[in-house]
Design a protein around this nucleic acid. Sequence first.
DNA 1: TATTGTTATACTCTATAACTATA
DNA 2: TATAGTTATAGAGTATAACAATA
Lengths: 149, 149
Amino acid sequence: MASAELSSILAALGRDATARVRRAIRPLGITAHQYLVLTQLADLGLTSQTALASALGLDPSNLATTISELVDRDLVDRCRDDADRRRYAVTLTAAGTKLLRKAHTAIAASESDLLTALDPGQQAQLHTLLRRIADGAELCPAAGDDACD
Amino acid sequence: MASAELSSILAALGRDATARVRRAIRPLGITAHQYLVLTQLADLGLTSQTALASALGLDPSNLATTISELVDRDLVDRCRDDADRRRYAVTLTAAGTKLLRKAHTAIAASESDLLTALDPGQQAQLHTLLRRIADGAELCPAAGDDACD
DNA sequence: TATTGTTATACTCTATAACTATA
DNA sequence: TATAGTTATAGAGTATAACAATA
């Protein structure tokens, strides 16, 4: 990775990070996609699937599948939005919240060796820079409407 | 991506970066994997497949497939290492070098909007931090032996 | 016995198009 | 006509195990 573009470095580190996440959460019985959705739901509270998809950079068609899996396992709740009945309103269940907490712990433990190369100040700096790119690039915040029940 | 671990942010940005690379090089008729291998070969000169695999963080079994595809298209050259005949010695061909140059150009053009969120100083900083992680984490440099012909 | 690389296979992820239903 | 979501499908990427050849 000697003289690569930013895209290539990000792609390589991203692949490594994804593999790390996958290994860490495998004992919990969820995939990386499922974990991503749970995390995003925890952040956004209640949202539509389109909002979720664009926030995560996933294709809506794939998100539909992932959410169905999570609903089947009672980790998320999906019901029609009364204000716009095309939409679904999606939220975490108590079980989903609980499992997500376990996942966070497992992942945090697994990334410690990633961070040993940086001192705390550098870690914070990196976090800030990455977030700035993520926010600026294409991840639209997307507002969650109300509804459900 | 409000309150996520470093792994999650890296995974998300990595996915985006991979998609960006894929779109950029699609007109050239190569996959992201193939591009990665070409890039790495340009950096390392002549190497074994094991060295390549560990440098890229790819599984050797998948690398075998990718390299075969590249050999079929005459973008890389693969022949047995005389010093250790288990090994292959892999290099870029002239055609591979040429195609790689086009790919670099296409990718550089496609990542400009990624970088608008950061000023030049921050871009350099980010590059440094990511490289430090990449070097420290698990990407072993791997020495390329001599051989071929 | 350990290492280099291959093949086969199963699973996950990505991307597209065609579709339903609501607006 | 446009938007939210679904289904189906094909292609790309990831992971594992079993194997051949060489060291």
